[in-house]
């Protein structure tokens, strides 16, 4: 299976209480469970990222529950208010229970 690689775009600096745009993308096939193997005709089992969560210094910021209708390599963009300098933590949860994570620091001035 292709390697799962999370990527995020977060500004390095922001002014206090500024609202910033955060873009996230994770490479993942998001197998819907609807497709069939072209050779054997058997259904390919569902395997998707079903949950995405972002937190800032431990406080929840944004959460998304995803269904098979979300495209492969799920892209999510949202807005965050930056109250202080801190760490944004991103977590993606796979159907098989694995969690992929990433952290980025924003310096508030």
């Amino acid at each position: 299976m292709a390697k799962v690689k999370p990527r995020v775009k977060v500004p390095k600096t922001a002014s206090v209480n500024e609202v910033v745009t955060i873009k996230t993308l994770i490479s993942h096939p998001m197998e819907s469970g609807q497709r069939k193997d072209s050779k054997t005709g058997e259904a390919i089992p569902r395997k998707i990222i079903n949950k995405f969560a972002a937190s800032f210094n431990g406080e929840p910021v944004f959460m998304a529950n995803m269904e098979p209708s979300v495209s492969a390599n799920p892209y999510i963009e949202f807005q965050m208010r930056v109250p202080e300098t801190g760490v944004v933590r991103f977590e993606w949860t796979d159907d098989d229970g694995s969690v992929y994570d990433l952290e980025k620091t924003i310096t508030a001035a």
Binding site: V20, F62, E77, F78, Q79, M80
Partner: peptide, 9 residues
């Protein structure tokens, strides 16, 4: 902490 109640996907 959400800056706006909007999202893109």
């Amino acid at each position: 902490l959400s800056g706006a109640q909007e999202a893109k996907t």
